[in-house]
Design a protein around this nucleic acid. Sequence first.
DNA 1: AACTCCATGTAATGCGTTACATGATTCT
DNA 2: AGAATCATGTAACGCATTACATGGAGTT
Lengths: 237, 237
Amino acid sequence: MVSKVGPAGTTAVSAEMPAEHALLGLLALDERQPPEGGGRREGSHGYDLARRFGDGQPLGDVLRLEPGMLYHHLKKIERAGWAAVEANDSAPAGRRGSSRPPRRSYRLTAAGEAELWRWLGEPVTHTRELRLEFLVKLYFARRLAPERAARLVAEQRAILDRLTASLTAQRLALDAAPAPDDGGQAPTPPDADDRHFLRQVLDLRLIQTAAAANWLDRVAPSPPPMAVDSASGSDSR
Amino acid sequence: MVSKVGPAGTTAVSAEMPAEHALLGLLALDERQPPEGGGRREGSHGYDLARRFGDGQPLGDVLRLEPGMLYHHLKKIERAGWAAVEANDSAPAGRRGSSRPPRRSYRLTAAGEAELWRWLGEPVTHTRELRLEFLVKLYFARRLAPERAARLVAEQRAILDRLTASLTAQRLALDAAPAPDDGGQAPTPPDADDRHFLRQVLDLRLIQTAAAANWLDRVAPSPPPMAVDSASGSDSR
DNA sequence: AACTCCATGTAATGCGTTACATGATTCT
DNA sequence: AGAATCATGTAACGCATTACATGGAGTT
């Protein structure tokens, strides 16, 4: 089952799958951090990864992931060649005759790292994806490569601008042309009620997009406040 | 999330299913409108309903519905007792030896009407549902009972206010208490980076909620502009 | 004695998407 | 001649949700 074609499965890269990529991100973070005791790296097995999607955790606030789905995604990542089991610790920390299943610790492959960076570099195309997928990208971009985070924000900003322009054009066209002459045939010219509704739809999209752009502008420059406890720090520009 | 029971499939009222309710709404609209030729009511069979979710149509702009899913939903609605097949026209408009399947024209049952009104009266609880589910509710409320639409908007507005209050409280708590004494144990007190991220998450939610509230205030009072062609009409407030 | 933690999953069910089947009539 | 319209669906597939299974170790 390499090429996911099938009569119905056109699973191309269209679906972006934020959960899988969040897992890739966690694996990348784990490889950055030596366990500071000098010994081997802990974590990066399912149960430990699951904790980071828990209740008080920052990622868990944005993306909920139940254990069942998490293990499912890990298997998918493995099948895709993006990660591999590095150590099959049959005896977690000294217990040997255990009935508990062995830990499966994952490590990113080269392909997995490439995929992660590709994903981190791409802004999202729909406004509704900001609240989940973009926030997750931002989370990992900041921690793995802050200079990339700035670019991601800028590109996302550009996409929102393009969206705003398109919505504004539609909005103007609606007001300008109730039935403007119409050389051929409009595919059912909308009546007054319908135009009223379409105006409201466009207005909602416009205002939500503008709000997101506004937020992005405030997100853009400031890195975390320098590890000093002063909470003021609104710096240059 | 009303009653989710059962080991896996319980289908309670938890998922709100906007597509099904949009279909109920269309059936209700069809019953309002006598076919104006004096004869029998047309429409209200699958193929005709599907057209209203098409490309230039106002509903289609908000909620996309492919024929496959549409027929599936109609079956579900029938099983739920919300609609029944009223006429099984084997010969659509005079053609008799047809190989084409007979039209199945649906009509709302009493239970279906009750369900529709219940749904139309309930605002949505999550901001992400505004763009799809709430807009659909608004569409039908305006056309079926404008006085109800005003109440729906008001209640939705109240929910957004409550949400804003909750988010603001969380936001303040974040800034106030990095680790404020902590009598028991905080479940992993967040570090500076995590707090920075959580601030951004809350800020996005706040600004999106505020934008939605703003939009709702503009949506609220004005009915469609009186059937006069003057396009100025920015009235009170 | 009862509960939670660890650590992996599976089973059952439903939802959503896309493609395809049928076959006469009507438009281009 | 070729395409679209009408009018119903089914088939195949993948994603998401929820509950449950296992069984020893430590905690209350």
